[in-house]
Structures are given as C-alpha cells and as structure tokens.
C-alpha cells in the first residue's frame, strides 16, 4: 500500500515537473520573440527618426525658396497681391506681379 502510494506520488511529481518545464520553455520562447520584436521596433523608430530629420532638412525654408525661384518662378507673396476678386476685376498686373490700379498698363 505504502509502496503503491510512493510510486503514484513519484509519477505525479514527474508529470508536474514535465508540465512545468514545458510551460517555462514556451514562456521563454515567447519572451525571446517579444525581445526580437522590441529590437525591431527600436530599429524602425530609429529609421523613422532618421527620415523625419532628412525631411526637415529637405524642407529648409531657404532651400524651398531657392527651388521655387528656379523651377516655379515663384516669389514671396507681397501685400499688393493680397486682394478680393472684386478688387481684382479691372486691375492689371505689373512686371513684378503687383497689381496696378485702374486702367494703367505695365
């Protein structure tokens, strides 16, 4: 009787130890996957940061202004160009883009 009990207890203990081992191994695998994902996130965030900085560098106002002048022939808006449609009718544009009053010609 006692011997049977000992045998049963030993088997149960062994099974429990095995179950614990399996659970622990799976948990470790999951942790490793998480750590790899975290490293991946860090890497992506670092790249995003690099790109943001590159974008800010490319968007420097002096660079955009120079490109606008060369490729689009645009100039900074002057106060004279800011007007309503009603004001625009009957107006003429001068050589510098400014609106000339009345019927004056450039």
């Amino acid at each position: 009787m006692i011997r049977a009990f000992y045998v049963l207890a030993s088997v149960v203990t062994a099974l429990l130890a095995l179950a614990l081992y399996v659970a622990k191994t799976e948990a470790q695998s999951a942790q490793q996957r998480i750590a790899r994902m975290e490293n991946g996130i860090i890497s992506e965030l670092s790249q995003i940061s690099q790109l943001e900085n590159e974008l800010a560098y490319l968007e420097r106002p002096e660079r955009l202004e120079a490109l606008s002048r060369v490729h689009l022939q645009l100039r900074p808006l002057s106060p004279e160009q800011d007007m309503t449609f009603a004001q625009l009718s009957g107006q003429h544009l001068g050589s510098n883009g400014a609106v000339l009053a009345g019927k004056a010609r450039p």
Partner: peptide
C-alpha cells in the same frame, strides 16, 4: 530567472 537566457533588447537606443 529567465532573463539570462532570453535575448536582451538593445540598451542605448531604447524604445
């Protein structure tokens, strides 16, 4: 103690 056997995240450039 599972940390010693897992892959550690990068230290300096943290999340």
């Amino acid at each position: 103690d599972h940390q010693s056997v897992s892959v550690k995240s990068r230290v300096v450039a943290a999340i």
